[in-house]
Amino acid sequence: MTGLTINGVTAGYGDVTVLQDVSFNVAAPGITAVIGSNGAGKTTLLRALSGLIRPNAGRIALGGAELAGQAPDAFVATGIAHVPEGRRLFAGMTVEDNLMMGAFSRRLPASALREELDAVYALFPRLAERRKQDAVSMSGGEQQMCAIGRGLMAKPKVMLIDELSLGLAPVAVDVLVDALTRLAADGLGLLVVEQDVAVAFDLASQIVVLDRGRVTRTGPSASVAADPAVRAAYLGEA
């Protein structure tokens, strides 16, 4: 399998353990969504999967390459792009400069870089209109497009997206969901952290439920969505 394998990952900050023995697979191509309440460890999970924190135990492997314990640049080079919570675009840089930063690890010649930029602009035409604009002067939805485009510029096999829809207008979320669906159809593996459970069920084929640092449920979206316990906990149904 060509996706991302997470096996027995335990991680945290200093003496505080946030993730306990987390194991699941992210299929590539395919869309997997992580749901869970605040403080469940969703962001910590993505930080471990992009090398920002080193797990205390466990394995993280992509296409046979073992990554746990390595620095973030090794994760990027192997094919994991991380779109962080709140987009974290580089302020003061144009949209195009932000996108070019996404390709930093690839040392592309100018002509190849141009082609990759054009591919992102084809996916998100709004970015083409705003290519020379300061990236953080755009709307939240456009910034998320730019952040996802920046992630794509690394040519990842698996892309991690933290809080896809948080704070965005519903129409912007529709555009993003549509784009991610197309990317997955073209072969990309996606791991999306999503606080809006309805969006998660709609977007993803696989769901991972994270509760207080542990995986409590994994499965196809339809069966997890039908689970009364999940509906009670995350959709507020009695």
Partner: peptide, 15 residues
């Protein structure tokens, strides 16, 4: 410039 703006996010770019 990216490191000046946001060190951690620049690491996510492979810097």
């Amino acid at each position: 410039v990216a490191v000046r703006m946001d060190r951690e996010t620049s690491m996510l770019m492979g810097v």
